[in-house]
Amino acid sequence: MKRWIPFLKSDPTVAVIRLSGMIAASGRAALNDASLAPVIEKAFARGKPKAVILEINSPGGSPVQSSLIGARIRRLSEEKNIPVIAFVEDVAASGGYWLAAAADEIYADDSSVVGSIGVISSSFGAHEFLAKQGIERRVYTAGKSKSMLDPFRPANPEDVARLKELLDDIHVNFKDHITARRKGKLPEDRDLFTGEIWLARKAVDLGLIDGIGHMKPMMQARFGAKVKFNRYGVRKPFLSRFGTQLAGDALHGIEERSAFAQFGL
């Protein structure tokens, strides 16, 4: 009510966007630009916030979606002249760290995991199993690379080399993003782009984050004890609240649990 009374100063507000989970182009629980776009737009537009906070807890995922989300955040921050501050919870790794680097400042808990600035592609090989079962794989293509990395055929060295080239190019994009966003903060005598991970204290020393701290006390210290937190997040579809899409949710949960597990979480 206070903000509607003329000449009466309102309490400062900060907008909080929660970015928790895997980053993927599809999936109801996944982080992607399509589902987050309206959330991010509202966070920057409503109530003239002093800052936009990113609450991040993500082991990564799609490099494209990470780039799209991060670019949207940067674009709105610059258009509206609103600073962005990231707070890492359990992990901001790979694409999760890409999102964190979209912020002007990054803070984390002592035990937060940060880094994994690399690119990975994983698959499986089932050609020996099929052969033992007497199953013949038949694939017909126009274009010699159309069946690249078919998991039901032996690995082709040319396909592997081609995939490695693609991964290297994506890795360059990742490194360029981090180098630009953390300009002047990263050591020149240390390769931080090996896919290695660090706890927060070490990440501070390496310039990957700006300090150790938690959102509420830091924002109160910066904007005053009466600062208000307006939270924004993706709402679940109405029917999902009544137990529909359980199979899809279960599969996504397994995948997400596996992604977090690689960081000991």
Score class of each variant (00 low, 15 high):
residue 170 I to H: 01
residue 198 W to V: 10
residue 49 P to M: 15
residue 116 S to T: 05
residue 173 N to M: 11
residue 208 L to T: 06
residue 142 A to R: 01
residue 10 S to E: 15
residue 193 F to G: 04
residue 36 L to P: 06
residue 130 L to K: 13
residue 177 H to S: 12
residue 78 E to H: 10
residue 30 A to T: 04
residue 206 L to S: 06
residue 173 N to D: 15
residue 22 M to N: 14
residue 180 A to D: 00
residue 110 D to K: 12
residue 131 A to G: 02
residue 135 I to Y: 12
residue 178 I to E: 04
residue 45 A to N: 07
residue 58 S to Y: 04
residue 84 V to I: 12
residue 158 E to W: 09
residue 117 I to V: 02
residue 71 A to M: 14
residue 26 S to D: 13
residue 255 E to T: 10
residue 258 S to V: 00
residue 152 F to M: 12
residue 158 E to A: 13
residue 265 L to C: 08
residue 104 D to N: 14
residue 110 D to R: 09
residue 31 L to V: 10
residue 112 S to M: 01
residue 153 R to S: 14
residue 124 F to D: 06
residue 104 D to M: 10
residue 111 S to W: 11
residue 250 A to E: 07
residue 94 S to R: 01
residue 138 R to V: 15
residue 139 V to Y: 09
residue 119 V to S: 07
residue 166 L to T: 10
residue 144 K to I: 13
residue 41 E to Q: 10
residue 61 G to K: 02
residue 105 E to A: 04
residue 96 G to W: 13
residue 26 S to F: 07
residue 104 D to H: 13
residue 161 A to K: 12
residue 220 Q to T: 02
residue 12 P to D: 09
residue 167 L to V: 01
residue 9 K to M: 01
residue 23 I to S: 02
residue 103 A to F: 06
residue 207 G to C: 10
residue 11 D to A: 12
residue 183 K to I: 04
residue 191 D to Q: 00
residue 171 H to E: 05
residue 77 S to C: 13
residue 233 G to V: 03
residue 245 Q to C: 05
residue 186 L to M: 08
residue 210 D to I: 14
residue 258 S to T: 00
residue 143 G to I: 07
residue 138 R to W: 13
residue 236 K to G: 08
residue 26 S to E: 14
residue 82 I to K: 14
residue 77 S to T: 01
residue 96 G to R: 07
residue 20 S to W: 05
residue 113 V to C: 08
residue 68 L to N: 12
residue 194 T to N: 06
residue 224 G to A: 05
residue 220 Q to L: 08
residue 247 A to T: 12
residue 129 F to H: 10
residue 244 T to G: 10
residue 252 H to T: 14
residue 234 V to C: 00
residue 106 I to C: 00
residue 93 A to G: 07
residue 154 P to R: 01
residue 75 R to S: 12
residue 254 I to F: 15
residue 197 I to A: 15
residue 73 I to V: 14
residue 226 K to R: 14
residue 107 Y to L: 04
residue 139 V to H: 09
residue 143 G to P: 05
residue 103 A to Q: 09
residue 85 I to R: 01
residue 197 I to C: 15
residue 8 L to P: 01
residue 173 N to I: 11
residue 118 G to W: 02
residue 255 E to D: 11
residue 256 E to S: 15
residue 155 A to G: 01
residue 243 G to Q: 02
residue 186 L to A: 07
residue 13 T to M: 05
residue 11 D to H: 04
residue 223 F to A: 09
residue 11 D to I: 07
residue 31 L to C: 13
residue 14 V to R: 02
residue 156 N to C: 03
residue 57 N to T: 04
residue 194 T to V: 06
residue 163 L to D: 03
residue 109 D to V: 03
residue 188 E to H: 03
residue 184 G to S: 07
residue 119 V to C: 09
residue 30 A to Y: 13
residue 123 S to R: 00
residue 204 V to D: 02
residue 41 E to A: 11
residue 49 P to L: 15
residue 44 F to S: 06
residue 202 K to E: 14
residue 2 K to R: 14
residue 152 F to A: 11
residue 62 S to I: 09
residue 228 K to H: 13
residue 71 A to G: 14
residue 217 P to G: 08
residue 126 A to Y: 08
residue 213 G to E: 00
residue 158 E to T: 08
residue 132 K to T: 06
residue 156 N to T: 00
residue 212 I to V: 11
residue 44 F to G: 04
residue 6 P to W: 04
residue 14 V to M: 01
residue 99 L to K: 01
residue 215 M to V: 01
residue 80 K to N: 09
residue 135 I to R: 15
residue 254 I to M: 14
residue 151 P to R: 12
residue 24 A to F: 07
